[in-house]
Design a binder for these strands. Structure first.
Lengths: 243, 243
DNA sequence: TCAAAAGTGTTCCATTTACACCCATGC
DNA sequence: GCATGGGTGTAAATGGAACACTTTTGA
């Protein structure tokens, strides 16, 4: 038991960000190349330390998102994944990191000249397949983020944030297929997704894709939690994103 | 962007524990009466600061569980709920807390003379009903822990850890009813729970409860994840535990 | 023999799945 | 026309809810 005048040891608090997007129907994560030791030159999740001792933790995550990825922080929903606090996870000392999950529609890599200069979108399958190694315990954080994203697709309207302002049902389906890493029956997906009231609402217009019948365009509806949920087939937990 | 020689602000890291148990088929949470300011005299979740800067965060949670509740830490599974880091959550300064969820079978309140002297099991419905106020943001942490426990019951064999070494199916059902806050059809529960292979295994013996047909005794099986899951009725999210 | 608790069988209904089929467009 | 992708209909399989019914005990 601590003494009366005992003071707890201070730690350094960092935030790390798992940012997913879809590029050509393939799930990508945002990585940055580290410019300083430790792990200088290696790839890592974007993130950083608290700015000052009055900064909210989720605010720090938003700030890093802005600084390192140049993504407008206010728009994106950040969800906490958890704290990572193994004593030896950072060779510099005792660093506890709070990880957040963010989802963004497909965007170009932002401008050089900022912290984001070394930011790159990397296919998730490359990371999970071992072709790309991440610094610290960031691979575990990314795996946890992927599982969280997969689960969120079932119960929330998260998938629409992968898409643009308007989208076809098929585009929405490709989001589910890319994140879940499986293929879905497009005809059943059609009805399932439209049976969820206020999940997606028809915009009236259509989109011509060159050949075939034009697809109706939809926009995200007001609903954020899905009733009934769009459940993925049980046991179909693929380690990698859709090829 | 921080300067080269800039150093991040240190924070104090704490752990808080949401510990649930069942006493007479009512869900209880372990609370401690605070002996020091702030919130001196108020009830709070058990927890405390990191002991030293080499201590693992989950190890600190185990240690506090031992110190404050006298519960054998090694036996219990701790699951991280997340980090709570609002700047003003602790008037003493910048304290970020990592919360953990633990489940214990019904146990008496441990011995006086330790940190655990002021530990009490409190019905969860009293806390959620506003009859009991908690210090800091501990009510929110407890609510998050309850929702996590409810969800875990669906997909994991967690419910058996609420019971003793052996139990009847009816006792197991009471766990689900107490945590979910709803009533279940005992006849359907029977088959559902036995349809999950290796979830519970019959021990051969029976238990006589005074009147009525003796119930078969079971013990927890090797399976930790439930296939198929025991889903709770959709929309049946009661705010309080079973009365 | 009756009450009470354990355990079984069966029916009904909602959801899921698989797939046949029709619609609208470019070439 | 015909290939291509968009969208609808429908029947079989599945799984859960409801509940009648049987079994085993104590009193």
């Amino acid at each position: 038991m601590p003494e009366e005048d005992w003071t707890p040891p201070p730690v350094l608090l960092a935030v790390d960000l798992v940012i997913f997007t879809l590029r050509e129907s393939v799930l990508h994560a945002l990585l940055v190349e580290r410019g300083v030791d430790p792990f200088c030159g290696a790839l890592a999740l974007p993130g950083g330390f608290l700015d000052n001792d009055r900064e909210d933790v989720v605010a720090a995550a938003h700030r890093e998102l802005q600084e390192e990825a140049n993504l407008d922080a206010a728009q994106l929903h950040l969800e906490q994944l958890g704290a990572y606090g193994a004593p030896d996870r950072d060779p510099r000392g005792r660093v506890v990191s709070v990880a957040y999950l963010a989802i963004a529609p497909g965007l170009p890599v932002p401008i050089a000249g900022t912290d984001a200069a070394r930011a790159t979108w990397t296919p998730v399958s490359d990371i999970l397949g071992g072709h790309v190694r991440l610094a610290f315990d960031h691979e575990q954080i990314l795996i946890d983020g992927l599982e969280r994203a997969r689960s969120k697709l079932e119960h929330s309207a998260l998938a629409t944030t992968f898409c643009g302002k308007t989208f076809t049902i098929n585009e929405l389906q490709q989001v589910y297929e890319a994140v879940w890493g499986i293929e879905l029956d497009l005809r059943n997906f059609y009805r399932k997704v439209q049976a969820v009231s206020d999940f997606i609402v028809p915009i009236g217009a259509e989109r011509r894709a060159g050949k075939g019948r034009p697809a109706r365009l939809f926009k995200a509806g007001p609903r954020t939690t899905l009733h009934p949920p769009l459940t993925r087939p049980t046991g179909a937990t693929t380690a990698e994103g859709k090829q």
